[in-house]
C-alpha cells in the first residue's frame, strides 16, 4: 500500500514540477498516470523511489516513510520497487543476461558482483525471466543488438529480478509501435494480475489506459486533476486534462 501525501517538487531552476499531489494506491492495483508531456508524470514516479529528491511531502510505503529513509534504507526499499523506462535504459554494450542480472544488485554480495560474479540461482532466475518475456534465446547477445520491443522486455525482466512488490513504469510503450505496445502492456498486466505486483504506469494513449488500468490519476502542470476509474474520463474530463483544444486519438 502506497500513500503519497502533499508531494511537491521544485527543481533548482524554480520549475515547480509537482504541486501538492496526494493519492494512494492499494496493493495489487494497476494505476495509470496520465497527463501532457511535462505535466510531472516522470517526476512523480521518480520521487517514489527517490531517484529525484522531493522538496516536501511524504511518501508512505507499507507504513515506512520513504522520504525520510537514509541512503542504506533507501537501497533496501528500492530493491522492492522495480522500474521500467521509456527509453529502456539498458546498458547497451553489456550482454542481455548481464542487464537482467543487474536487477539482483541490491541483493547480492557487493564485492563479488563487482567482478560480475552472481550466484547460480540468480543466473537461472534471469534465464527464466527472459523465458517468460519470450527472449531467452537472446540472452547472450549484446543489448543494443535487440529491437526496441525486445529491449523493453529485457527492461521488464530486469525489474522482475528484483522480486518487486511494486513496479514503476515510466511511459513504457511511448517509443514502441502499437502492436509492440500491447504486448509490453500485456506483460505488465500479467505481472500485475498473476503475482499481485502493484503497477504504477504513466501512459499517453487513453485506449491503453481503458484497457489495462484499474484506476487512473491525471496530472496537469504538476497538480492532480483527476483520480478515479478510467471509464470516468469522458470528453469533458479529457479536455480538462489535456487542454480545451486537444483531440482524442486512439
Amino acid at each position: 500500500m502506497l500513500e503519497v501525501r502533499n508531494l511537491s517538487k521544485t527543481y533548482d531552476g524554480g520549475m515547480q514540477a509537482l504541486k501538492n499531489v496526494s493519492f494512494s494506491v492499494k496493493q495489487g492495483e494497476f494505476l495509470a498516470v496520465i497527463g501532457l508531456s511535462g505535466s510531472g508524470k516522470s517526476t512523480l514516479l521518480r520521487c517514489i523511489n527517490r531517484l529525484i529528491e522531493p522538496t516536501s511531502g511524504q511518501i508512505l510505503w507499507n507504513g515506512q516513510d520513504i522520504t525520510a529513509a537514509s541512503q542504506d534504507e533507501m537501497r533496501h526499499i528500492r530493491r522492492k520497487i522495480g522500474m521500467v523506462f521509456q527509453h529502456f535504459n539498458l546498458v547497451s554494450r553489456s550482454k542481455v543476461l548481464t542487464n537482467v542480472l543487474a536487477g539482483r544488485l541490491g541483493y547480492v554480495n557487493p564485492i563479488l558482483s563487482a567482478f560480475n560474479r552472481f550466484p547460480e540461482s540468480d543466473v537461472q532466475m534471469a534465464l527464466s525471466q527472459l523465458d517468460r518475456v519470450g527472449i531467452k534465446n537472446q540472452a547472450y547477445k549484446r543489448a543494443d543488438e535487440l529491437s526496441g520491443g525486445q529491449q523493453q522486455r529485457v527492461g521488464i525482466a530486469r525489474a522482475m529480478m528484483q522480486e518487486p512488490t511494486m513496479v514503476l513504469a515510466d511511459e513504457p510503450v511511448a517509443s514502441l509501435d502499437p502492436v509492440l505496445a500491447h504486448s509490453i502492456m500485456q506483460h505488465l498486466e500479467e505481472i500485475n494480475k498473476q503475482e499481485g505486483v502493484t503497477v504504477l504506469c504513466s501512459l499517453h494513449f487513453l485506449d491503453l489506459v481503458h484497457r489495462y488500468a484499474d484506476r487512473a490519476i491525471a496530472l496537469k502542470e504538476g497538480a492532480l486533476m483527476f483520480d478515479g476509474p478510467p471509464n470516468q474520463i469522458n470528453d469533458e474530463k479529457f479536455r480538462e486534462i489535456y487542454g480545451k483544444d486537444a483531440e482524442r486519438i486512439g
Partner: peptide, 15 residues
Amino acid sequence: GPLEAIQATGANRLQ
C-alpha cells in the same frame, strides 16, 4: 539512463 536504471535496482555506488 542506464545509470538511473541501475540505481533504481538498489545497487550501491560501486555497483
